[in-house]
Every structure is written in structure tokens, then in C-alpha cells.
Simulated assay, not measured.
Amino acid sequence: MISHETDQALARARGTLDRVRLQSFDMPATTRRSRPRRSVAKRAAAIGAANVIILLAAAIIGLAIMPLGIFGALAVVLVMMAVTLAIAFAPGPRPVTHEKLVKSDLKALPMQTTRWLDAQRPALPAPAVQVADRIGLRLDTLGKQLQALDDGAPVGADIRRLVAEQLPDFIRDYQRVPVELRGAERNGKTPDRQLVEGLELIEREIGQMSEELARGDLDSLETRGRFLEMKYKDGDAT
């Protein structure tokens, strides 16, 4: 569960970010970074798959039904171009807002948080992106575990507080620090370093939650193993 020490550590990190941000009042406003672009790799894979299907369909028609001829081949090319353009310029999924994150169903919360976290990557320094990737893996595991969890389970409130509130709030506090000050050291640490350490702390907490959720399954397996060992010991089934 979320420990008191975790809350204190995150509060100290956020306090440092706040103090650094206060230094920016006399500085010119910086432009916001653009939203992350759609996944080029996924779109390229979808385009490739669609074009392969079109070519296979054209080949089957040309061999089994009737030759396509010049006009048929031209039609195939036009269809491939139309499909390529449709996939390339299709609108991406709507971004997950913080408000939507807070209202998400517990079982869908890890996936929604992962989507929100992915959208923040362009605004994070490289070391923090690496930690965010690890958090994403933790959330994937947590999401699978939550599918078997009752909605009213007490652990649900702790998970929601950490994943839907503390994690987004912490990253948003960092993003409000002007870019020029993120590498400036204050009290021995820079905002960039505070961000990385805070995310590492959150990653560990999510990992501990997964371990606690899995402990019931592990205990069940251990109990069943002892039962089978006693029942079928030495190959004597009763």
C-alpha cells in the first residue's frame, strides 16, 4: 500500500518543483511542446497489412476468376493508394485527459494511465522516459491483476490514488517548471533529478502493489502444491 514515507517523499519532490517554478515569474513564457505525434510504426504496419490483403485478393481474382488486365491493375493501385491515405490521415485515438483518468473504471485505469503517460513522453527528459517505460510495464501487469479484483476491494482506493492522482499531479508539476530551470540545481538536486527519483518511487510502489495482489495467488498455488504432495506422495493416489 502507499506508505506515509512515499507521500512525504513525493511531497518534498513536488515542493522543490514548486520553488523552482516560482523563480520563473520574471522570465518570458516558453512555448509548450507539441502533443506527441501518432505512432508512425503502427500506421505503417497497418498500411502494409492492408496493401498485402489487397494484392492477395487481386491475385486470387486474376488467377481464379478473370484476368485483371491494365484497367484492373490500375484499379488495384488506386485502391491501395486510397487505403494508404485513409490509414495515414485517419484521426488517432482521443487523448486521455486527467479528468477522464480520475473517472476511469478501476479495471481500465492502468491502461488509461499508460496512454496518458505515453502522451507525456515528449515533455520528459530521457532518464525520466526510461522510468516511465518501466512504469508502463508495471501498469500492464497491474491491469491484468485487476481484472480478477472486486471493485469494492480496499486496495482499489490505494491504487487509484497513486495511479490516477499522485502520478499525474507529480508529472504536471514538473511540466510547469520552465525549461530553462529544469537543469538548475537547487538544494543539491535539479528538477530533472527530482522528477526521475519521484517516478522511480512511484514505480516501486506499483511493483509492491502487484506483489501484494499476486501474493494471494501465490499462497493459493503453494497451498494446492502441498495438498497434491500429500495426496499423491510416492505415487500412491487415494
Rank of each mutant, 00 (worst) to 15 (best):
S3K: 11
S3G: 10
H4P: 10
E5S: 14
E5H: 13
D7A: 09
D7C: 07
Q8R: 13
A9D: 00
A11K: 11
A11T: 13
A13I: 06
R14L: 07
G15C: 02
D18F: 12
D18K: 15
R19G: 06
R19H: 07
V20W: 00
R21M: 03
R21C: 02
Q23K: 15
P28N: 04
T30A: 15
T31Y: 11
T31G: 12
R32W: 03
R37N: 04
A45H: 11
A46H: 07
A46S: 11
A50D: 07
I53P: 04
A58S: 08
A59L: 12
I61G: 02
G62A: 09
A64P: 07
P67I: 00
P67M: 00
L68F: 03
L68Q: 05
I70N: 15
F71M: 08
G72L: 00
G72V: 01
V76N: 09
V77M: 14
V77E: 13
L78C: 10
V79P: 03
M81K: 15
M81V: 15
V83I: 12
L85S: 14
L85Q: 13
L85I: 12
L85K: 14
A90M: 10
G92K: 09
V96R: 04
T97F: 00
E99I: 04
K100P: 06
K100D: 12
V102Y: 08
S104V: 02
S104L: 01
L106N: 04
L106K: 05
A108F: 04
L109M: 09
M111S: 14
Q112W: 03
T114V: 07
R121F: 08
R121G: 08
P122H: 09
L124K: 01
P125K: 04
A126N: 10
A126Q: 11
P127H: 09
P127C: 06
V129A: 05
V131S: 00
L137S: 15
R138E: 06
R138Q: 08
D140R: 11
D140G: 13
L142D: 02
K144W: 11
Q145P: 02
A148R: 13
A148K: 13
A153W: 08
A157C: 11
A157N: 15
I159A: 05
R160M: 11
R161L: 12
R161G: 10
V163S: 01
A164L: 06
Q166C: 05
Q166A: 10
P168W: 00
D169R: 15
D169V: 11
F170M: 04
I171R: 05
Q175I: 06
Q175H: 07
R176E: 10
R176Y: 06
V177H: 00
E180A: 15
L181F: 04
L181N: 08
L181G: 09
G183I: 07
N187L: 10
R193V: 03
Q194G: 10
L195H: 01
V196Q: 04
E197A: 14
E197T: 14
E197F: 06
G198D: 02
I202S: 01
R204I: 11
E205I: 00
E205S: 10
I206G: 01
Q208A: 10
E211V: 09
E212Y: 08
R215F: 03
G216I: 09
D217H: 14
D217L: 14
L218Q: 12
S220V: 03
E222I: 11
E222T: 15
G225E: 10
F227K: 14
M230S: 04
M230W: 02
K231C: 00
Y232E: 07
D234I: 07
G235K: 03
A237F: 07
T238D: 12
